[in-house]
């Protein structure tokens, strides 16, 4: 179903001389959730992202891979305006967000509104030092939800969606910090899911976890995409191959190649992608 989308993007990226943005009919907007257009990002004077173009298809998993320091986290944190928390950084270009077609980086778009629509799961599990329940309920409470029954309902649903319910249903009042690392990470996923975000960002969500916890989170991500669009950063190429529909390869702040995961892994068009995939650097 995404054949046209792929082909067009694939071509537009390879053909990097082409300056103008893709024409509206170049891809089906209904199928896109977000799209970085000429996104550059600077920490002070240092450019961490250089004119990145990246489409994120709705209800699909898009993986970002690339060697350490290539700007994957920087990209992800631009999407939910995390960089706004720290002074001295600067964006150029934009990130369109659909269906309402706003620019997430627009000065007039409130970063809080952006973060209410886009959830994030971090590399290291970061539960709040509160109870399991309060962790998952926090996003709802931030939105002013006070109805206890509704909170209970939504917390349970989120924990079920994060495949954690069975393990914690009897210890909802326990400190979240007493959970295991894998459980904590699923708790953070539940916390992000509870507010029903449209797009969920994962920044190497399994790099601090053992293989079993990793597998359970990968299953989870697969299961979630029916409900939410997913953009995941990973160091682990096998993981990208396992969980994602599309993969983007980044190198030194540039987006080198974007393609359906299968294509990118079996038939990369750029030498740098190939070198990375075959382990010649990174």
């Amino acid at each position: 179903m995404d054949e046209t989308l792929n082909k067009l993007y694939f071509r537009s990226l390879v053909d990097s001389e082409r300056e103008e943005a893709p024409t509206p009919e170049a891809h089906d907007l209904r199928k896109l959730k977000a799209e970085a257009k000429g996104l550059s990002f600077y920490y002070g004077e240092v450019a961490a992202l250089k004119a990145v173009n990246l489409p994120v298809a709705e209800h699909q998993v898009t993986a970002l891979i690339g060697p350490s320091g290539c700007g994957k986290s920087t990209f992800l944190r631009a999407v939910n305006r995390m960089h706004d928390l720290y002074p001295g950084s600067r964006y150029e270009g934009g990130i369109r967000f659909y269906p309402d077609d706003i620019d997430l980086l627009d000065k007039d778009v409130d970063p809080i509104e952006v973060r209410m629509r886009i959830g994030m799961v971090f590399q290291k599990p970061n539960p709040f030092p509160k109870s399991v329940f309060d962790n998952v309920a926090y996003g709802l409470r931030v939105r002013g939800e006070r109805n206890r029954r509704l909170l209970v309902e939504k917390v349970e649903q989120a924990l079920r969606d994060a495949a954690l319910w069975a393990e914690v249903k009897d210890r909802l009042d326990d400190m979240a910090l007493n959970l295991s690392g894998g459980q904590q990470q699923r708790l953070c996923i539940a916390r992000a899911l509870a507010t029903e975000p449209e797009l969920l960002l994962f920044d190497e969500p399994t790099s601090a976890l053992d293989p079993i916890a990793t597998a359970s989170i990968e299953d989870l991500i697969q299961g979630l995409k029916a409900r939410v669009t997913i953009l995941i950063v990973t160091h682990n190429m096998q993981q990208a191959a396992r969980v994602s529909d599309y993969t983007a390869f980044m190198y030194l702040g540039e987006l080198v190649e974007f393609a359906p995961t299968k294509t990118l892994f079996t038939n990369p068009s750029d030498r740098r992608t190939e070198n990375y995939l075959t382990g010649r650097f990174g």
């Binding site: 809080i112 973060r115 959830g119 931030v142 992000a192």
Partner: peptide
């Protein structure tokens, strides 16, 4: 960041 990321 966890708090801000939830829209706080």
């Amino acid at each position: 960041e966890g708090s801000y990321a939830l829209g706080a």
